[in-house]
Simulated assay, not measured.
Amino acid sequence: MSAVTAYREWHRALRTFKLSADLHPCDWCGDWAARWCYDGSRATAEQGSGAFVFVEDSSAYMPLCDSCAGTFTAARRRLSYAELADAVPELARAARDNVSAFTRADVLIDTAKRREYAAAAQMTRLGKAPQAAIRATDALLRHAYSN
């Protein structure tokens, strides 16, 4: 299996383990996340190469929005892992300062609803959730989004 194929397969599995990144707030700024980013903390277990480096450990991934992911990737390319670990807190603080507290609060409230719905939908696809639970979750979401 090529490095690119293995990378894609792992990210598909990661979405199964942790659900899609867009169901989580960005770890840095608090806005909606767009992708799972490898945090560089498991250098000895890395697989792949270049832009397709990954580890098979879901705890080594953080949800980031596109803007924060771009900042993180640029920093990862120019810094060693030790330097990156020192730079991340400041980069995250700067990202957080660019997003309003209102936006972060709105995302946090919405996150629970999205995750509940996605988990119920995933369980239904696996044939493990009763349809009544899906209907109840769907009704809650419709009510929440109608306000």
Rank of each mutant, 00 (worst) to 15 (best):
P25Y: 08
A121N: 12
E83H: 08
H24A: 11
T124K: 13
R76F: 11
A118G: 02
T16N: 08
Y145I: 02
L84V: 00
F102R: 04
R125V: 10
M1N: 01
S20H: 08
R93W: 08
A132W: 15
A136Y: 09
L64F: 15
R78H: 05
K18N: 06
G50L: 09
Y145N: 02
A129F: 13
L141H: 05
R114P: 08
S58I: 14
Y61M: 10
N147R: 12
L79K: 04
Y7N: 13
S80F: 10
L141T: 07
G50T: 08
T16C: 11
Y38L: 03
Y81E: 10
F52E: 09
R142N: 11
K18R: 09
F54W: 15
D66P: 04
T111Y: 15
Q131D: 13
L84H: 01
Q47Y: 12
A51N: 12
G40W: 01
D22R: 00
S80H: 09
W32M: 08
A74M: 12
L141K: 07
F72K: 02
T5I: 08
L140G: 07
G30K: 02
M1T: 02
C29F: 11
R76S: 06
R135L: 10
L126H: 12
A133P: 01
M62P: 00
G30M: 03
K18V: 01
E46F: 09
H143D: 04
A119H: 00
A45S: 11
R114K: 15
W32S: 08
A92W: 06
H24Q: 14
T124G: 06
R76T: 00
Y145S: 00
F17G: 00
A34L: 14
Y117W: 11
R125Q: 14
A133F: 11
G70Y: 03
C65A: 14
T124M: 13
I134T: 03
S58M: 11
E83D: 11
L108M: 14
L140M: 04
F102D: 11
K113I: 11
R15F: 02
D97K: 08
D110S: 07
F54Q: 05
A69N: 07
R15H: 10
P130W: 04
P130L: 06
C68E: 09
D138G: 02
D57M: 04
L64D: 15
V4Y: 10
L19I: 05
E56A: 05
E116P: 00
T73P: 01
A3Y: 11
A129P: 04
W32Q: 13
R114G: 14
R104D: 13
